[in-house]
Design a protein around this nucleic acid. Sequence first.
DNA 1: TTGCGTGCAAAGGTTTTGCATGGCA
DNA 2: TGCCATGCAAAACCTTTGCACGCAA
Lengths: 148, 148
Amino acid sequence: MGEHKRPVQYHTRQSQGILDYLRSLGDRHVTVNQLVRYFEATEEAIGQTTIYRHLEKLVSEGKIRKYVLRDGTSACYQYLDIDLPCREHFHLKCEICGGLIHADCDLLDEIAEHLLSTHDFQINLLKTVFYGTCKKCLAAGQAQERLP
Amino acid sequence: MGEHKRPVQYHTRQSQGILDYLRSLGDRHVTVNQLVRYFEATEEAIGQTTIYRHLEKLVSEGKIRKYVLRDGTSACYQYLDIDLPCREHFHLKCEICGGLIHADCDLLDEIAEHLLSTHDFQINLLKTVFYGTCKKCLAAGQAQERLP
DNA sequence: TTGCGTGCAAAGGTTTTGCATGGCA
DNA sequence: TGCCATGCAAAACCTTTGCACGCAA
């Protein structure tokens, strides 16, 4: 008892390819769709079912992290470098263009600290997303407002 | 300039019913599915399309909040007491107990200011929610960790 | 050879859209 | 009467599941 079932794991082109690609992205995140399209573009297409299954396994192994944004969009996955003390970061989601920006910033780190010490609230950065308008769309919107 | 387009809004049985029901729930949240089933159970069924459209409008008006719970399989909506100046609050949603905390804090202004000046991102406070674990649930969780 | 891995196809679920009709002002 | 609101049906998405075949060990 207490011994976890440890199924044999095969090493395949797909499992290696997915992990390699995620790792190559550094701390950038991708969606399942982006992964499918990436491998399609190479000569080594990988079925989406396989991608979903590997991502789920990698998440449970703690090798990657899953972000649930689900406000009409899909989930994002990001490689976690075990060697580096991975810094948390915040996500900014543009309501206009749908773009997802991640911000690595000291002040934002302070927020987490402040919420915990002052409000006794431990923020979950995997799920928290700041909604708003990005630079590009702000500029476009202002340009439009100036029209007759 | 600065005047927002203000489309005429009709008062209908559906719009009234949805807002009334959400309000009657106090701080409890519901899913779209639950709303559909609730109105089906009364003699005043409301189409799901209509429910989706009203919820979206209410969110953009700041009258209700939209949340992602669980694995993001579906969204939840919760009424906000209009009397509270919610634009100036953090909204902290506990993922464990579901509680919503209105945190009144100057830091929020700083964050908005910082995001705009440094990241060129204009945050929409009506839609942004901080997810995490509240004081109570943090304590309960720690207590659990101490168990055998 | 064994049995996990793969991927097509289909199912399942949520949310959005097209469009003709209904109903408020 | 003029529009906005409504809701059915269908589409659009994202994700999971069934199943036969492929392939690593």
